[in-house]
Each structure stands twice: as C-alpha cells, then as structure tokens.
Design a protein around this nucleic acid. Structure first.
Lengths: 190, 190
DNA sequence: GGTGTCATGTAAACAGTTACATGATTTT
DNA sequence: AAAATCATGTAACTGTTTACATGACACC
C-alpha cells in the first residue's frame, strides 16, 4: 500500500487537500499511479483513521468546502520508518519483450515494424517525463541536497528510457545478419 | 489482458496443460506475472471460448486427468495480429524512488543505509533472473534468430538492473559533497 | 452555451495475489 | 511420516482504472 506512503510524503512538504494531492500525483514524473479520486480519497480516510494525518475543513462561500490534511508527529515517524525499511526491487513490466519473444514467426520487415513502433512509443514517454518534470515542481524552497536527489530521480527514469532506445539500436544491428540479402560484405567493409 | 496473449504465445511453441503453463510462467525470466492458478485457468477458459485454442482431455489412471491446450489457426492469426499491434511503453514501478524523494529529511548515514539495502535487493534480482534463464529454457529446437532474440530479451532485463547499480554508484558519489566532513580535498586530490 | 477548473465522493470493472480445497503418487 | 509434485479449480482480498454523480464559478 505504498500509495498511502506517497501521500504521506507529499503531506510532509506542506498540508494539501485531496484535490491538490490528486493533481500532484497526476503531474508527478516519478509516482506510478494515475492519481484517480478513488485512490486518493480512500488513502486519506485510511491515513486519518490511523492518526497519521489531521483534517481541517475549510468552508468557503461560492465553492465546495475544502478538507485540508496535514501530517502529524505520528505520521512523520511512520514516514521515516517506511523510508528506512527494506525497499522493494524495481518492477519492470515490458509487454513488448513478450511480443518480441514469439517474433521469430515474423519476417524481418515485420520485426522492423515492431521495433520502430516501440521506439516511437519510448520517445513519446521521454517527452512526457521531461514535460512533467517542468510542471510538477511543487516543492518550492529546496535544500541543495533535495534538489540533487530529485534531479537524480528524474535522471533514473529518463535514463531507463534512453537505455531502451540504445537497446533497440543494438537489437536492430544484431538482426541485420539474418537478412536474406547478405549484408555481411557491407558490415565487414565498413 | 496481455496474459492471455502470453499464454497464446507459449502455446504457439507446442501444446501444454494449464499446469505446464503455470510452471513455465513462474520460471520465465521475462513474463511479469506470478503465474498463479487463477490467472492461468481463467485465461485458458477465455481463449477456448474465443476459439483461439483447442482442448483435449487426456485421461490417465492414477493421476488426475490432464487438459491439453493447442493453438488453433484462429489463435495463430490473433497472436500475429497482437505482435504487430502498437506496443505498450515499458512500465517502471520503482517504489524506491518515492522513498528517496523525501529522504532529505534523513541524515547522510541513513540515506547510505537506504542505498545499501536497495543495492542488495537489486543484486538478488540479478541472480534470480540469471538463475531463471538457465531453468526456463523451454523451447528446445530454436532457430538461430530465435536464440538471438531471447538472448537480447534477457540482456534487456539484466542490463536494466545493472543500470540501477551504476545509478546507485553515481548517486553515492554525488551525495559525498553534502557530507559534514568536507571531503572536497580528497576529491580534488584524487 | 459549451468547456474547463475547483472540490468532493461512489460504483463498477478489471488485474493480480494469496490462500483454500481435493486427491493420488513420489520423494525425503 | 512428512513434504513435494502432479493436476485441477475456487474464494477472498488488494490494487488500480474508468466512469458516474453533483454543483458552482470562470472563461471563451
């Protein structure tokens, strides 16, 4: 249930409403959730029940009333405990690799089509991350170290995608030797 | 619902029972599912309903009867169609990055502890992949190209993990400049 | 007058995991 | 005698997404 901890982490910066958190998660470049209502409001109820956050209702005329959540001392302790706990290994869900696993049933041009499409998809993802990095800078007064950590988090995700592009290139090159037209001459002469 | 297509892909090699498929998916180094009963048996029912696989019941004395599934012509066509469809972008779920995002609240030694634990976790994952690559070679008569593709799939996943190790090293190095003991002298003299 | 933002919440569906259940045979 | 393997299947739960629902205000 790491989304609860992610919400707790956001609230450790400053108090937010559910609606704020929803947008923060949607615009975040490193949180893997869509940030839909169901998750956020449920997480807040749970965190409140556990006493990890406090709730203040802000009535406003000509607008629905806001519920502002703030982290409690107990919440801060829980967040720290979670950070120091044994981390999960990263999870890669690369459905493309499964498509590729049976691709020997295809001819060279068809595989090339697959690779091109995958490449295009990756490039879109890189642009999205980069765009989100600009928009999703919600922590204003940062220490130098915090800025460095966030830059490295961004670097991690973009580099992972860039590695994917490099890997496609390598795969393309390696596949050339299976072309019907014998390209070995070309390869050895270059 | 890509697990259905993954099952279809496995059946494109040769016919299997549900139990066989379950173990193949569990031992696979590139399929991201646990391969539990619920998923496999449900997938097979669905594939059968759609006419993508055929079912043959094999009665055996002194053992429960087996249901052997084989891919149909319709199934082969569907598999090919799926392979040529627009691929999904890879999904990275790196909860560690979220833990790290709030780590400015910790001191240097505590962050170092986090990194060490993450490093350890990654190394375990690499060993698991490597181990699974040896066990999970279920396709016996391979073409040269298929062998190459599978090697590259394995390379992709292991390299992704190795990149994570490299990134940790880079992060550690970059964090040194925030140590209280001024290590800059050391850095500039080396 | 339609679309977008603010602000909350619920319902239904899909995806995925763990655990339960049975029963025979084989291995330790 | 206990544990693992073969072989099927179901139940309960967690996690996640999409869509529905309301209502006021602002912008084009």
């Amino acid at each position: 249930m790491s989304i609860n901890h992610a919400v707790l982490g956001l609230l450790s910066i400053k108090p937010f409403s559910g609606y704020d958190l929803k947008k923060l998660i949607q615009d975040s470049f490193f949180m893997p959730w869509s940030g839909n209502n169901n998750q956020i409001y449920k997480a807040l109820v749970e965190l409140h029940d556990e006493g990890l956050v406090s709730k203040t209702v802000q009535h406003q005329e000509s607008s629905p009333s806001k519920k502002i959540y703030a982290i409690t001392a107990k919440g801060s302790a829980e967040l720290k405990k979670w950070m120091l706990a044994v981390p999960d290994a990263p999870e890669f869900k690369k459905i493309f690799l499964i498509q590729l696993a049976w691709a020997d049933q295809l001819d060279q041009e068809e595989i090339e089509t697959m690779l091109s499409q995958y490449e295009k998809e990756i490039k879109i993802q890189i642009l999205i991350r980069q765009e989100k990095k600009v928009r999703g800078s919600f922590s204003p007064d940062r220490t130098e170290r915090e800025t460095y950590l966030w830059d490295m988090i961004h670097d991690n995700l973009v580099s992972s995608l860039n590695y994917e592009l490099y890997w496609i290139k390598k795969l393309r090159q390696g596949l050339r030797r299976f072309d019907k037209e014998d390209n070995n001459h070309e390869l050895s002469s270059s």
